[in-house]
Simulated assay, not measured.
Amino acid sequence: MSHAIDAGGHDDHGHEGHGHGEHGHMPFLAHHFDDPEQQFDSGKLGMWLFLVTEVLFFSGMFCAYALYRARNPEVWTFASQFLNETLGAFNTGVLLFSSLSMAWGVRCAQLRQRTGLVVCLATTLGCAAMFLGIKAVEYTHKWDLGLLPAGFYESQFLPHAPHTGLSSWLYTLSYIPAACVVGFAIWYVLTIVQGKKRMSEIAGPLLVTALCYFVGVLIGIAFQNAEEAAHKAEHTATAHVVADGEKEPVDAEHIVGEHGDHNADALSATVGAASEAGVPGGRPIEAIDQKGGAGLFFSIYYCMTGVHALHILGGMGVMVWLLVRATKDQFNEQYFGPVDYVGLYWHLVDLIWIYLFPLLYLIK
């Protein structure tokens, strides 16, 4: 016997009416969608709209970059000498590989390949952590040299200034990743001992992710030291030229006072090379290397790369959520939308870096 269903979805016996009998067999299908395809398309449209707002957000910073660069070309010519192109290029490769692993993860979700999806998400997380580790080395090296945003900028116009030892700032930034390594390692061991297979599939990738941060730190330090060694050799050769009287030496006494453990000849040669680098507009280096000059470049640098790093962290947080759901085998050929949506977001984050890298590191 049929029952009347009121506007609230209840029949005359008080039972809820669903209107779509198949929902009981599809726990992932929300009640306001007719079928999985409609749910997927709606979610994807929402993600594209969100990505449009992200593009508009970064567009404001790109416009600021273009405006200030056009007005102060000599500042960019000078300040870009402080950036390590090798580290930037390596990080670009890391993010491109992470896009590949994320796309592969989407395919694994479509084919209901649970293990493959877990591996792909773990790989993407590891690449993201490695990227952040390398950025930590870049940031802390600049902080030690006083290469800070306008208002805090303190550098003595020393591109590629010699730098010894690990930065205390790097230790500070590494406290949380180190705590994550210890915590995830303990958790992983406990899951193995207790035989909790699904929990170990979560703890293991998270442990690898935390360790990848320190892999990035080691890679960053290695590239940074190699770059500094090359510049030190170049500056030493320049110092010999100065000693032969071919160039006017630059007084570095005030610099040596702050960097007493650095080689004075190398510092003099560094400043001399920067002074003779030739900058558009004819402004002297001393006028560029001040809070309103190079500090402006680093204000934009930290703003753009810092906001991008925050988006990396946000993407990692959502991927951990996907990892937990993947271990529960919640994705299949009819329901893989969340993985696809996060993949779209991650590709945009990678694309933004592909623009940031040449604009900040390569264009002199």
Rank of each mutant, 00 (worst) to 15 (best):
D265Y: 12
V256W: 03
K291C: 09
E248N: 09
T305W: 08
A230R: 13
V279Y: 15
H262T: 10
A230F: 07
Q224C: 02
Q290I: 05
C303K: 12
S268G: 13
V271Y: 09
F297C: 00
V241M: 08
A266T: 13
H308S: 13
A233M: 01
V307K: 08
P280Q: 05
E234L: 01
I221W: 09
Y301V: 11
F223V: 03
H259A: 11
A210E: 00
C303M: 12
E258H: 13
G281M: 04
A274C: 14
H259D: 09
A230S: 14
E286I: 11
T238M: 11
V241H: 03
H311W: 14
F223W: 09
S275M: 15
H240G: 04
E227C: 00
E227W: 01
P205A: 04
A233I: 03
L313M: 15
V320R: 05
I312E: 01
H254Q: 10
E286P: 05
P249D: 06
G281A: 00
E228C: 05
E248F: 01
L206Y: 05
T305L: 07
V279W: 15
A252N: 03
Y301G: 11
N263F: 02
H311N: 13
A230C: 09
F297A: 00
L296M: 15
A264Y: 09
A239S: 02
E228T: 03
M319V: 01
K232P: 03
I300R: 04
C212H: 12
S275V: 00
S268F: 06
T305R: 06
S299C: 13
G315S: 14
A230N: 12
A266V: 11
S299M: 06
I221S: 05
E286L: 09
V318R: 12
G315W: 04
E246Q: 13
Y213C: 02
V318W: 12
E228S: 13
E276H: 11
C303T: 14
I202L: 12
G220C: 01
V242I: 07
